[in-house]
């Protein structure tokens, strides 16, 4: 079984406000990479291919993915501000070229917070999808997968035929740290760089971000001294009790 893991470079979500955040692999995609590694480690996958669409600067995150244990990586060289639909159309072409049995990817990129690409890719390919997944088991000689999904109403379990798209939620696993030998090995692993023209896809974003502003901020209110004071304020001032 071959697993394709699309991943995105995003500003570090743990960086404090104001600090210039360094780039990292999107946390949900890191979870996807970790899961692919575990599937390979239990003998159910033979190859893990990472793919990212971005400018040369994202090569640093590609190295991290390779150091975690991804076998080889592809960067689709594109520095435009692409929207999730454009990203999913590029990925569709790559999936057709690589023919994986599973595409394992994050549910959401934590910079744009769109939560669209996996589902769009599944729609374009006509493949089944399991989104927001917290557990994966392969069934029937790896022709199907049973997945637990985190939904608003609690955990839901579905079974899907392969090939399929699976998107990860936070509770699927805890990604490993990159090891020194991993980093050494990563240096020798191949990174293929291609562009959309070479891939034969012609996409243009249909959504454009016109401006980005800081939302209004809440300000600190009143420090209270006791439970009695809190109850009084909630009753008389806030009128919520």
């Amino acid at each position: 079984m071959k697993i394709l893991v699309p991943f995105k470079s995003v500003p570090d979500p743990y960086a404090g406000a104001g600090a210039a955040a360094k780039s990292v692999i999107n946390p949900f995609d890191e979870i996807a990479i970790e899961e692919a590694l575990r599937i390979r480690e239990r003998g159910e996958a033979t190859e893990i291919v990472g793919v990212t669409i971005g400018a040369p600067a994202v090569d640093e995150q590609i190295r991290s993915a390779l150091a975690m244990g991804v076998d080889r990586a592809i960067r689709i060289d594109d520095s435009r501000a692409l929207d999730p639909y454009a990203i999913s159309r590029i990925l569709r072409t790559l999936v057709e070229r690589e023919a994986p049995q599973v595409v394992l990817m994050g549910k959401q990129a934590v910079d744009d917070d769109s939560n669209q690409v996996g589902q769009m890719l599944a729609g374009l390919l006509g493949w089944p999808q399991a989104t927001f997944v917290s557990k994966i088991e392969f069934l029937d000689n790896k022709t199907r997968a049973q997945c637990s999904r985190e939904t608003d109403g609690g955990i839901e379990v579905i079974a899907i035929s392969l090939p399929a798209i699976i998107t990860t939620d936070l509770r699927l696993n805890e990604p490993r740290y990159v090891s020194l030998p991993g980093l050494m090995k990563a240096r020798k692993k191949p990174i293929e760089v291609i562009n959309c023209e070479q891939l034969g896809v012609n996409v243009h974003p249909l959504t454009t971000t016109l401006s980005v502003a800081s939302p209004p901020r809440r300000t600190a209110g009143t420090r209270l001294e006791s439970v009695e004071e809190l109850v009084t304020r909630l009753k008389q001032e806030a009128k919520v009790l």
């Binding site: 493949w127 089944p128 999808q129 399991a130 049973q146 109403g153 609690g154 955990i155 839901e156 379990v157 579905i158 079974a159 899907i160 035929s161 399929a164």
Partner: peptide, 8 residues
């Protein structure tokens, strides 16, 4: 190609 199995 997708089947519902269960819901908590």
């Amino acid at each position: 190609e997708m089947q519902f199995v269960s819901r908590e």
